[in-house]
Amino acid sequence: MLDDRARMEAAKKEKVEQILAEFQLQEEDLKKVMRRMQKEMDRGLRLETHEEASVKMLPTYVRSTPEGSEVGDFLSLDLGGTNFRVMLVKVGEGEEGQWSVKTKHQMYSIPEDAMTGTAEMLFDYISECISDFLDKHQMKHKKLPLGFTFSFPVRHEDIDKGILLNWTKGFKASGAEGNNVVGLLRDAIKRRGDFEMDVVAMVNDTVATMISCYYEDHQCEVGMIVGTGCNACYMEEMQNVELVEGDEGRMCVNTEWGAFGDSGELDEFLLEYDRLVDESSANPGQQLYEKLIGGKYMGELVRLVLLRLVDENLLFHGEASEQLRTRGAFETRFVSQVESDTGDRKQIYNILSTLGLRPSTTDCDIVRRACESVSTRAAHMCSAGLAGVINRMRESRSEDVMRITVGVDGSVYKLHPSFKERFHASVRRLTPSCEITFIESEEGSGRGAALVSAVACKKACMLGQ
């Protein structure tokens, strides 16, 4: 009897593995994704193909990295998701002549009506938060230079001027797309009239992360975010950046690689679950690469896999709870928690219980395998993109072996128990001629924006502006 049951459990697990095998990517698959990513990057950089390229390769006008001589107080704003952060950054000489960066910050959550109302409502709310922060720190009387981390696709015309191309991540505030974001912020500050600010720089969160990590390690020339969304930036040779005049030196390019796949480059790798996630998203047909990796989508992918296993009578005796059938019910943090389970399955059992399920031991094991399959594919897909960037940098610099540091931020990278190990191992397999160091950014977005502002202020002083 026991043997029969054991055989049935083994057969069930084997069927589960057959279904989950769809998520496995072979090294040849990853090399294919990497080569296609490089081709799209090239198209994004070139003037004649930029418009139709899915990977936009947006110039950021960040050319210099901090040298350690900029000092002063800077205000930093960070808008990239449902939370908005205001930070005071003091850049100065530390002990023994070292450079020191001290920060104080406060988080504000953005109400739904500000995210989806008008641009005026959104930026009025942001300036209200700045006003509140300055009151708390008794700094209303000071006109501070301000660095703005704005983590949406922007076409820069200068370091302090950028046109919002399109909202992502659930934002829909009308009247912002096609307009200068810094102008919208300046107008809102003017409307309030109770404080003055000098907006000197606007950067993407990947750029802010790279600059913040450069402060720790001067070989950091790539910034990457794996959180709600997924994106990367890197220092490109100016001669390859056709959208900006000049051939000397390097400029940081914001790849906006989340949109890779929007022209069909990933079609052969998309599964039924991916198509369902895409169809029910706020932007169907867009940001397809990001939807395979980002935390906004990972939990939902797992939920759809679990429903398939229920329908195949391989999980929960073929019956799903009402909660499990509800879109968004299986949160991405559950994926991390399930994979963090120590082996007694308590954590998995508790999560499934909150979803109205009474799982068996085998159910718990199957749910864990589903989570591992989805998150491992995410790590491997992400590795193909980064390997594409790094191999490109090595080739354009004609280096036999390139040493490089990548600064990384984002909740999936930082909080998932195995993502970074799987990701690092896969990147290294795909970049055999590179020695890569990964560092995690601390308060990256805010500190990085302030350091970019410090560079901009120093330049302005040198130019006598």
Rank of each mutant, 00 (worst) to 15 (best):
A21E: 14
R394A: 10
F423G: 00
T361C: 03
M87G: 06
P145Y: 06
T103W: 05
D400K: 14
V55P: 01
C213P: 01
S263P: 05
L352I: 11
F334V: 04
L307N: 10
N283A: 10
E399K: 04
V412E: 01
H137R: 07
E112S: 08
Q24C: 15
R275K: 12
L315C: 12
E268L: 03
G261D: 01
F260L: 13
M393H: 00
A379S: 13
K140Q: 15
R447V: 15
V452S: 03
G446I: 13
G162H: 05
I163M: 14
I351T: 05
D267R: 03
E196H: 03
I293Y: 04
Q18D: 15
V71M: 15
F260H: 02
E221H: 11
I110S: 02
E14Q: 15
N204M: 05
L306A: 02
T405G: 14
V182D: 15
L301E: 07
Q106I: 14
G385E: 08
A282R: 03
P145C: 08
T168K: 06
M37R: 00
M57F: 02
K346D: 03
Q286V: 15
S281C: 08
H424V: 01
G294S: 12
K296A: 13
E256D: 15
H424C: 09
G227Y: 00
E27H: 14
L355F: 09
P111Y: 05
L77I: 09
L415A: 12
L75I: 03
S109D: 15
Y289D: 00
Q18S: 15
H416Q: 05
V427F: 12
A119L: 10
Y413A: 04
L75C: 05
E14P: 09
V33C: 10
F133Q: 02
G227A: 04
I110H: 00
A370V: 09
S398I: 09
F423L: 10
A259Y: 13
E322K: 07
K56E: 01
W167M: 11
G295H: 14
L266C: 01
E96P: 06
A329N: 04
E93V: 14
D73C: 01
R303E: 00
R368V: 13
D247Q: 05
K102S: 05
T255R: 00
V71R: 10
Y413W: 08
E27I: 04
R303G: 00
E236N: 00
R192M: 05
C457D: 15
S263V: 15
G94I: 07
T361G: 11
T60A: 03
Q287W: 10
S383G: 14
S445C: 15
V71T: 09
V452W: 13
G464P: 11
S109P: 15
Q465C: 12
I110E: 01
C220W: 02
W99T: 12
R308V: 10
S383A: 13
E14W: 04
S445A: 12
S433K: 09
K39V: 14
R403E: 10
G117R: 03
D311S: 10
T332R: 08
A53C: 08
V182R: 14
F195R: 06
M393Q: 02
T228A: 13
R369S: 11
E372N: 12
F23Q: 00
G223Y: 03
E435D: 10
D78N: 09
G328V: 03
M139F: 12
M402H: 13
E221T: 09
K136Q: 05
G147I: 12
S76L: 04
I19F: 12
S418A: 10
R345W: 12
L292N: 03
N83Y: 09
A188N: 02
E157M: 14
G464D: 15
V406C: 06
P153L: 05
E52C: 14
E112H: 13
E40F: 01
G249L: 00
F148W: 11
M41L: 08
H141Y: 12
D365N: 13
Q38L: 07
I189K: 05
T332H: 08
E237Y: 12
I390N: 02
T49K: 06
I189W: 13
F23G: 01
T431E: 06
A10T: 14
H218N: 05
L430S: 02
L122W: 07
T326S: 14
R447D: 09
A201S: 13
Y349V: 13
A259E: 10
V374Q: 01
V226I: 10
L122K: 14
V91L: 13
S54H: 12
E221Y: 03
R403L: 10
L355T: 02
V338Y: 02
P417G: 07
D344V: 03
S281V: 04
C233T: 04
D132K: 12
E421A: 11
S445N: 15
T65K: 05
L324G: 00
A450F: 13
C233H: 02
L75K: 02
R5V: 14
V86R: 02
M197G: 12
M381L: 10
S263A: 11
V408F: 05
A6T: 09
R7V: 14
G261Y: 00
E290Q: 13
S174I: 11
S151D: 12
Y234V: 01
A378W: 04
R394V: 09
M115I: 07
T82W: 08
D217K: 03
E435K: 06
E196S: 14
E48I: 14
A201E: 05
L20T: 15
R428C: 13
E216K: 10
L306T: 04
V182Y: 07
H50A: 03
R447F: 13
N254S: 11
I19Q: 02
Q465G: 08
E28P: 03
N179H: 12
R36P: 00
A232M: 11
E256G: 11
D124G: 05
M87N: 14
K291C: 01
S336F: 12
I110Q: 05
H137N: 00
I159N: 07
E442K: 12
N166R: 15
G264Q: 09
R5N: 09
M87W: 15
S69W: 13
D42Y: 09
R275Q: 15
Y349E: 12
Y289A: 02
L324D: 01
A208M: 04
R422S: 10
R7D: 13
Q347I: 13
P111M: 06
K90L: 10
Y413E: 02
C233I: 01
P59W: 05
E14F: 11
Y273I: 03
N283G: 05
K414P: 02
R303T: 01
P417W: 02
I404E: 00
A456V: 10
R43V: 08
E265P: 02
A11N: 06
F23E: 00
A232S: 07
D262R: 14
R43N: 11
G264A: 10
T60Q: 01
I189H: 10
